[in-house]
């Protein structure tokens, strides 16, 4: 299934004000991979993701989804393949009710009637937001908006899922729910996050972005063992990998 391959080749993005957000990034993600892109604030993660479905145009370099090169002509096809959840759910929700908003994508895909309704309800149930369907999106809490935003993309049944900070601002239960959804989605998925414990649980592969460049790209386990690298990129080893203070000598000092 070469369709689910994401390939970025020497990508560079310079914003109109001169900020170089992405310097020179290349990677290749194959079918079924689950990849986390991590890095400090302003490292260029959101900018990078927005190239994957053509929301931003590269200053130079290429993006390939499957066998197709991303360009003006192939954009509609690529957007059908790549489902994208933005960092700020307010950017994503614009219809009068939650139901209408989730239905927007399937309707654009040409579906009608009960098929649309089924897709919408399935997606809403998956993210645990079915009870919100009649509410207007602007009356939701931040976390609820986030869940609905994820549902809007799931309802389009994309082949590749791209999420920008899917669990930021969610309560532990909702975070777990989203993680389960991601685990069950067995096509290619790419997401950014500051939640490194989640990365450890969900991703075999991690890419560290630092000031618009890839600092590391490899198995998650290896990367999180490299303290020097993590510190250089403003990251911290996940708790799950830190040695328990109670079991080491540090605890001895506390004991009476």
């Amino acid at each position: 299934m070469s369709h689910h391959i994401v390939e970025v080749i020497h990508l560079q993005h310079i914003y109109p004000d001169g900020t170089i957000a992405i310097r020179d990034v290349s990677f290749r993600i194959t079918h079924g991979e689950s990849v986390a892109i991590i890095g400090a604030n302003g490292a260029g993660k959101s900018t990078l993701l927005q190239h994957l479905n053509g929301c931003l145009e590269a200053t130079s370099g290429q993006v390939r989804i499957g066998d197709t090169l991303l360009s003006k002509g192939t954009l509609p096809d690529i957007r059908r393949t790549v489902g994208m959840v933005f960092q700020n759910p307010d950017d994503q929700l614009f219809m009068p009710t939650v139901f209408d908003d989730v239905a927007f994508g399937p309707l654009n895909l040409g579906l009608v009637g009960t098929e649309v309704e089924k897709r919408v309800m399935d997606a809403l149930i998956q993210v645990g937001a079915a009870h919100l369907r009649a509410k207007p999106p602007y009356h939701l809490s931040g976390g609820e908006k986030k869940r609905v935003a994820i549902a809007t993309v799931l309802a389009m049944t994309p082949d590749i899922l791209v999420l920008d900070e899917p669990v930021s601002g969610l309560d532990p239960f909702a975070r777990r729910q989203i993680m389960t959804i991601l685990q069950e989605f067995n096509h290619t998925k790419i997401f950014t996050t500051h939640d490194l414990n989640m990365v450890l649980e969900l991703c075999q592969r991690t890419i560290i972005l630092h000031e618009g460049e890839i600092m590391a790209d490899g198995p998650t386990g290896d990367i999180f063992q490299n303290d020097v690298l993590l510190a250089a990129c403003h990251l911290e080893k996940p708790f799950a990998l830190q040695l328990c203070p109670a079991c080491t000598g540090a605890a001895g000092a506390i004991k009476p």
């Binding site: 957007r79 950017d91 614009f94």
Partner: peptide, 24 residues
């Protein structure tokens, strides 16, 4: 900027200049 972002979110969900009302 917000309007541009919303527009790109619409494009990302297959919007091609046509609105579909839910009611047929």
């Amino acid at each position: 900027q917000q309007a541009v972002r919303i527009h790109s979110a619409m494009l990302a969900r297959g919007f091609v200049g046509q609105f579909h009302a839910r009611r047929q």
